[in-house]
């Protein structure tokens, strides 16, 4: 009796082989398709190019100023120009460009806009606040500092690259 239990019957064997062959067919058929569907997730995101923002290095001050520029976004078969903006200022020798997107829920922050909080970035949506260097003020909704752009200076003109998150 116990021996019989361990033996694989003909029917069972055929069923195993059948599922094996079926699995092979499904895999052969589906693997290229699934790989294709997963492509956007698996593709390495390349660094975006630096774009001129139309602002000279000597025009910068210690006071953050907003610049608006256009970024060419290549979305597969569709290329479009998307408006971007940044708060740029000089911190000693260093040029800092902050993204104006509030890290809380994506509203746009303004510099020095609220009378109660001078010298701070203020988000009108949920009163999130950031220091001049982009650090979030503790006790306000945002949980991380404003994102920063890569900055490059070429021939005295400011070029902004990709946006980096800070923890």
């Amino acid at each position: 009796m116990s021996e019989k239990k361990h033996r694989v019957s003909r029917r069972q064997f055929l069923t195993y082989t059948l599922t094996g062959v079926g699995g092979f067919m499904a895999a052969g058929m589906l693997s290229p398709m699934v790989r294709m569907a997963l492509d956007p997730a698996l593709e390495a995101t390349g660094d975006s190019e630096f774009v001129a923002v139309g602002l000279g290095e000597d025009e910068l001050t210690e006071e953050p100023q907003i610049v608006n520029f256009e970024l060419e976004i290549e979305d597969a078969w569709y290329t479009s120009e998307q408006p971007r903006s940044a708060w740029i200022y000089k911190d000693g020798d260093e040029i800092i460009a902050l993204s104006p997107i509030c890290t809380h829920l994506g509203c746009t922050v303004n510099w020095d806009a609220n009378e109660d909080y001078p010298e701070q970035f203020f988000c009108p949506c949920h009163f999130g606040r950031f220091e001049r260097d982009g650090t979030n003020v503790a006790g306000t909704p945002p949980t991380r500092p404003l994102d920063v752009y890569d900055v490059e200076v070429r021939d005295g003109m400011i070029y902004l690259g990709q946006i980096n998150q800070r923890s």
């Binding site: 029917r11 055929l14 069923t15 082989t17 059948l18 062959v21 092979f24 067919m25 052969g28 058929m29």
Partner: peptide, 22 residues
């Protein structure tokens, strides 16, 4: 029996066909 006897042969033909197709 259709399952598994017949289907096994049918799918084996299908698997060979699939390889050629790919």
């Amino acid at each position: 029996a259709f399952w598994p006897n017949f289907l096994l042969r049918e799918w084996m033909v299908g698997a060979v066909f699939l390889i050629g197709f790919l």
